[in-house]
Design a protein around this nucleic acid. Structure first.
Length: 418
RNA sequence: CGGGGUAUAGCGCAGUGGUAGCGCGCACCGUUCGGGACGGUGAGGUCGCAGGUUCAAAUCCUGCUACCCCGACCA
């Protein structure tokens, strides 16, 4: 991609209506732009990152046997009345058609997926079943805040599992823990598996919490990794010695990037989702559900990986592999042009692209070196390559977040990038 | 939903009753060219919306809306 053609410019000053680090940096870098409070548009750079994250999540869900579907965002009011949530789900957006028909704008999809599955499940032979989707969710938050960490519309992956027995559910619950750990690790985050309340229809749930001052949650955990509880249910205090000798428990602020929890037969019973077992008896389907806030995950990555110059994307989710910068050189006749370089930006750009490397090429003609470097740091692509009169027939390599630069051949650069 | 704040050019802001301003950005010209360069010229505004007071309102009054912050809320 040529930077000069890219939709979405960087801006020098912090937007006045943002306070959170994620919204400031993502807005300044040209990744997102706010539509209304709690609702953001994703520009090409932002969508690139979102898609990288989405693909990691999709990969791990598929590995765990998940089948991807896409459910409706506009939902049947009757279903929400059946589960008694039409008037009890605080953040439920409700819309009314010109015919006065009311709908829910989906904040979650039990009300859709359970009746849907009911149309296909009749025997124990149809189970287990794992369905997931990646879709925009709507929640009428009393107060949107923290940039894309808590919006009224946000991208979420939700998976629903359907089982014949409690044992089978528990086995899959453990499988999902592995999948979630893999997702967060691949996204460059250290997410702590934390016990939390189960809400209205389960004794417990598990959350994946990432430590950062920007977090709205609070956990008490052991640095040794054997204990973590959300303070909303924690019965121990910070400072207590870990039972396994890992030292005192700590209390820290965190962002909840995912959660998983048992639904038992709460929704199955509401919709009569049953199956015929081997012995001929009719039984309720056991369910679990598993969510990852994908746009929140993106914001969390920014909160964790940044410095005073901008974002520092982990390689796995970076919008591009390389930010290529071309600086002009002096010609004999006094004119300046990129054509005079031994190794032009154009040539490097094409060579990298030929082997499948994703390149953001800052080909702008009338922009100073300093501005290009500043934008490069702000956007946060992991590797910066510079071609200029100084680099001769080589390229200058620099990792984002490090000061060291080195001159290497284009072949060496390609080798490192693949 | 309670409390507090803000709304003026694309962005960030100044402007307390008398001709609408600054910085950045943008367009054009020239000089620069490895860490957000410089000079010159220029374009760009129903001052959030509606009503009121006044000879005169960005400025005072009333109502509304949007956005931000703190809190409550966050199956």
């Amino acid at each position: 991609m040529r930077y000069s053609q890219l939709f979405g410019k960087t801006i020098r000053q912090d937007p006045k209506d943002e306070v959170s680090v994620n919204a400031k940096l993502l807005t300044r870098g040209g990744f997102i732009r706010k539509e209304v409070a709690g609702v953001y548009n994703f520009l090409p750079l932002g969508l690139k990152v979102l898609n990288k994250i989405t693909n990691i999540v999709r990969d791990e869900m598929n590995k765990a046997g998940g089948q991807e579907i896409l459910l409706s965002a506009l939902q049947n009011k009757a279903s929400w009345e059946k589960t008694d949530r039409w008037n009890n789900f605080d953040a439920l957006f409700k819309v009314k058609s010109r015919q006065e028909t009311e709908y829910a704008l989906g904040p979650t999809h039990e009300e859709v997926v359970v009746p849907l599955v009911g149309q296909f499940i009749s025997s124990y032979k149809d189970l287990p079943l794992y369905l997931y989707q990646i879709q925009n969710k709507f929640r009428d938050e009393a107060r949107a805040k923290s940039g894309i960490l808590r919006g009224r519309e946000f991208l979420m992956k939700d998976l629903y599992s359907f089982h014949t027995t409690e044992e089978d559910f528990e086995k899959y619950y453990e499988r999902m823990k592995e999948a979630y750990s893999a997702v967060f690790t691949r996204c460059g985050l250290d997410a702590i598996l934390t016990e939390a309340s189960g809400g209205a229809f389960s004794k417990f749930s598990h959350e994946y919490q990432v430590i950062t001052e920007a977090g709205e949650d609070e956990i008490i955990y052991c640095a040794g990794g054997d204990f973590s509880q959300n303070t909303e249910i924690a019965e121990v205090a910070a400072g207590k010695e870990c039972d396994l000798g890992h030292g005192p428990l700590k209390k820290v602020k965190t962002i909840e990037v995912g959660n998983i929890f048992p639904l038992k037969t709460k929704f199955s019973d509401a919709f009569g989702l049953t199956f015929k077992d081997k012995d001929g008896s009719q039984k309720s389907v056991i369910m679990g559900c598993y969510g990852i806030g994908i746009s929140r995950l993106l914001g969390t990555i920014v909160e964790v990986h940044n410095d005073d110059k901008g974002i520092i994307w982990p390689k796995s989710v970076a919008p591009y592999d390389v930010n290529l910068i071309e600086l002009k050189s002096q010609m004999a006749n006094g004119k300046t042009t990129s054509q005079n370089l031994k190794l032009s930006g154009e040539l490097v750009y094409e060579k990298l692209r030929e082997v499948g490397i994703e390149v953001l090429w800052d080909d702008r003609e009338d922009v100073s070196a300093g501005e290009k470097f500043a934008d490069c740091d702000l956007i946060g692509i992991p590797v910066r390559l510079v071609v200029s009169a100084k680099t001769g027939d080589q390229v200058e390599w620099k990792n984002r977040g490090e000061e060291k630069t080195e001159l290497i051949s284009i072949e060496e650069a390609i080798k490192r990038l693949i």
